[in-house]
Structures are given as C-alpha cells and as structure tokens.
Amino acid sequence: MPTLRPGTVRRYAVGTASIAATALLWQWAVTGPLADKPFATVPEILGKLRDFAGDPLFWSSLGETFRVAAIGLAISVVLGVAAGLLVGQSDLAYRSTRVLVEFLKPIPPIVILPLLVLVLGPTGDMGIFLVAFGGVFPLITQTAHGVHDVDPVAAETARSFRLTRWQRIRTLVAPTALPFVATGVRISANAALVIALVSEIIGGAPGLGKDLVLAQTTGDYPAIYALVVTFGVLGVLINSALAAVERRALFWHSSVRSEVTA
C-alpha cells in the first residue's frame, strides 16, 4: 500500500485546488463573457448529475454501454490471445499473417462502422462487433510478442526435460507472455469504452453515447456536459482499476516492481 508522504498530500491539495479553480473559472466564463454560447453553469451540470443518479434511464444506458464494452473486450481477449499464441509459436503462422495484421492494425474501427450499421443495424451487437474488432489486434501482437520473448535457455531446458506442449505453455510461455498480454488487455480495455461510445454516438446504438447526441439535438446543454463529465470519470475509473489489477496480478514482474519503487 502506498504510504501518505508529505509530497503526496501536497500533490492532492494542489490537484484539488486546481480542479476547484477550473470550476470557478468555468462558472465565471459561462455566466459572463460566454453567457450566450451553448454552455451550462457548474450548478446546472452538478444538478443534472444528481438527476442522473436517480434516473433509471441513465443507469440502463450506462449498463448498456458497459455491456457492449465488456462483451466486445472479452471476445477480443479470447480471440486475440488464442491467435497470438498460435502466431507467436509458429514461425510459419507468424510470417503468413504478419502483412495482414500489420495492415489491419493501424486502421481504426470507426472505418468499418458504416458497413456494420448496414449489416447489423444500430444495435448493441454492432457495438460489440466494433469493440472486438478494435481490441483484437493489439492483443494478437502483444501476445505473439510475449511468446517470442521466452528465454532461449529456458526453452532449451524445457525441451531437454521433455516437457509436454501443455506443460511448456503453462510453466514457460504463459508466465513470460502474461505481462505482454496484460499490456494488450489494458490497451484494448481503454479502447473498449471509447469504441462503445463511438458506436453509439455515430452508429446510433443505444447507450450513453446516443443520449449525448439526443441532448445535443434537443439543446439540453446541462445534460451534454454532465454526460461528458460522466465519460471522463468512467475513463479514469477504468484506467486506475486496470492499473491496480495489473499491479496485483504481476507484482513479481520487473516492469511492475520498478513502477512501485519509483
């Protein structure tokens, strides 16, 4: 557990003060020079957030966005790790798929969104497909990279001890590849929420993103900003949750150890 050092206390104090100052500055700007522009005041936004908290529709939208992101991510993890293990262990598979993967990887999922909307309609399934497509490539390359990273001496040792394929995967490949897979999962999980929201904002699937577009078209400014604040909070929560899980599961790995001591 991190101890509260004076530096940490100071950092939190400065951080809180600056958030408060930003809120004050925003309030001054939107009541003064920007009063006729499409903004909402801080009390309006906070009031809207309070309304959201008691609004079952908000929670069902949030649940839908989460469902789409989570299922899409799960699919991309299963497919990506399986494909990554295959590609990482066989030179033939690696070379055969390299061009295809390297070509598809930098193409963002938003590119195929029109096709998916055409085939699947503005539905949660469309969002799940989009999230899975966006998440699978980082996982393939990270897993394959991790498998490649197996220490050659350890691999030789495993061979001379005649470990079976399954034993080799369990005791040698998995521990080596796991930190790389974890990085891949973190990249894909960060992307999952964003892609789910994209499928809703642009693809019209139900969820918080669609609520945002509705708020924009009806001119409900407090709702727009309250939703954007919600997205930011969700993103920060997911980031810190993932970092915590990673620290706990991989406490033995040097990349995590050095992070803790620094």
């Binding site: 499409p38 938003i110 929420l193 964003v194 929201l197 994209v198 904002i201 642009i202 993103g209 945002l212 577009v213 708020a215 924009q216 727009i224 900003y225 939703l227 954007v228 997205f231 930011g232 909070v233 969700l234 993103g235 920060v236 997911i238 980031n239």
Partner: peptide
Amino acid sequence: VRATPGVALVPI
C-alpha cells in the same frame, strides 16, 4: 480530459 473520448466532444 484524456480519459474523455475525443469523439464525445464533437457534438459540443
């Protein structure tokens, strides 16, 4: 702000 998806800021 970084955790807020850029696409969500487009309507604003």
